[in-house]
Design a protein around this nucleic acid. Structure first.
Lengths: 137, 137
DNA sequence: ATTTATTGTAACCATTATAGTTACATTTTG
DNA sequence: CAAAATGTAACTATAATGGTTACAATAAAT
């Protein structure tokens, strides 16, 4: 299971997008996510490195760098999973076995396709879609 | 990152498929995967519950229930991730916040699509594809 | 029948990841 | 200068993961 940083990151960006009038502080966000403000700042830090969020020490609250319909879920996913693979593959299969010798590259072909398919779908959806789904419950 | 049980499960089934003459024991498999036989038997147990493998106490080695081209990677994925979601969502968002109140169902819509896309791709690939990739390195 | 080899599973352990927390330096605003 | 934020290091508790030992249960071979 992929950890909650991705869903929390989406939550953060959604709050910033829908409260652009107020100062959306880590404290405010933590109250909505129901966690500690440091957890928010930690993920906020990743989102800033990915150029999705603005803000900094002294500045009260975060703001978006781009419009919600320009921020894809893939952008957010990549921000919080900095380049890691979706599927782990076991380390040291036996090189003296025909299967062990080649299984990693064989797995790589298939698992990369699955990851690609997921990322393609994330790339079709934006923060604006998330916001829209909020209202039509 | 998804744990190595999935890739080890594929490795196990590949060995069983390509060594149907010999008795493919947990010991033999462990030597190829490079782990402890109990780890293999543990995953083997899941694959038996999913009706992908045959074998049992007293019987030396495992054998396949179906032909490799009838076993999809999705079958294997489902066997080792017994029904759990791909993406974790944080637990208790604040119900007194418009975003917190609805974010879980909004996330569910989007993340389910991404999981579906991945599973659709896994469903297109079979154990036979894995075996074929082994030889064309 | 007895021996042998094997699987199934419980129990335990070490390592790692995760999320929460405290503390404090840094920075901007007023 | 004071107040209010953020950034980040450091520490903690909890849980997941994979490895290991141990042993009961089973089937095959002799």
């Amino acid at each position: 299971m992929i950890n909650t940083r991705f869903s929390v990151a989406i939550h953060i960006l959604t709050l910033v997008a829908t409260n652009s009038d107020k100062g959306v502080t880590s404290n405010f966000i933590a109250g909505s996510v129901n966690t500690n403000p440091v957890v928010i700042r930690r993920i906020g830090s990743l989102l800033k490195k990915a150029n999705l969020l603005k803000g900094g020490p002294g500045v009260a609250g975060y703001s978006l760098v781009a419009e919600p319909n320009k921020i894809t879920l893939l952008d957010i996913y990549r921000a919080v999973t900095t380049g890691e693979e979706l599927f782990a593959v076991h380390d040291q299969p036996n090189p003296n076995c025909d299967v062990g010798k080649n299984i990693q590259s064989s797995l790589d072909i298939s698992l990369t396709r699955a990851q690609q398919a997921m990322e393609n779908e994330l790339n079709k959806q934006t923060l604006a879609d998330i916001i829209q789904h909020l209202s039509i419950q």
